[in-house]
């Protein structure tokens, strides 16, 4: 019976991994659609909204079923508890990608990007690598890649405020940038939240592997 449960747990972990890469892919495509003014790509991201929701529901159902059938303990129980939380964070990351793509499609596709917001790309790259590392830690049950998350999250926060100040300057200089900059500030906020979710995933992976709770502020 335990053998069957471990087989199903492994399957579930693979599903979480796939969901994680879908969320990452949605975020990546939404940023690309913004920089390349690619409405088609933005539409693709919007279509993936249902898929990531399905992953969330299906993994949750399967996790609860495993708990019900096998009443797991120790590392198995911690893994399932971590999975239930991690899928929520991944779902939100995917939804932020969808939110960015939504704005790109509705408001930014018609106009040229007037501003060269290098920091937005930077913050995205930071967040992307954090999510990737958190997923890798989950897949490999190895926490070495998430040890510097506190510093990396601080860097993301700094970049977000730097974008805020940059946008503020543009808006003061010329009111015609207000709409565009307001959107950029929201994007920066979304990406910064994605970084927070990567930290939450890392916390859960840490608990799953070691049985000890940590807080990455």
């Amino acid at each position: 019976m335990a053998k069957e449960m471990h087989k199903e747990l492994l399957f579930l972990k693979n599903e979480v991994s796939k969901m994680g890469h879908l969320a990452l892919n949605m975020l990546n495509d939404s940023i690309d659609s913004l920089y390349n003014q690619d409405i088609e790509l933005a539409s693709d991201v919007l279509e993936k909204k249902e898929k990531i929701k399905d992953y969330d529901n299906q993994i949750e159902e399967k996790t609860l079923k495993l708990i019900m059938l096998y009443q797991p303990m120790a590392i198995d129980l911690r893994s399932l508890a971590a999975i239930l939380k991690i899928i929520t964070y991944l779902h939100r990351i995917g939804r932020y990608g969808k939110d960015i793509a939504d704005v790109v499609k509705k408001h930014l596709s018609e106009r040229q990007i007037a501003l060269n917001l290098v920091n937005l790309r930077h913050i995205y790259e930071h967040v992307h690598s954090m999510i990737e590392d958190a997923l890798k830690a989950f897949e490999e049950m190895n926490i070495s890649g998430i040890k510097d998350f506190e510093t990396r999250d601080d860097e993301v926060d700094k970049l977000r405020w730097s974008i805020f100040r940059e946008c503020l300057t543009y808006m003061i200089e010329d009111p015609k940038y207000i709409t565009e900059c307001a959107h950029y500030m929201m994007f920066a906020r979304y990406l910064e939240r994605c970084g927070d979710h990567a930290c939450k995933i890392a916390e859960k992976v840490h608990y799953m592997v070691t049985g000890k709770h940590i807080e990455i502020s």
Partner: peptide
């Protein structure tokens, strides 16, 4: 202990 309680 872990191996026993996780059914290994």
């Amino acid at each position: 202990t872990e191996n026993y309680i996780t059914g290994r």
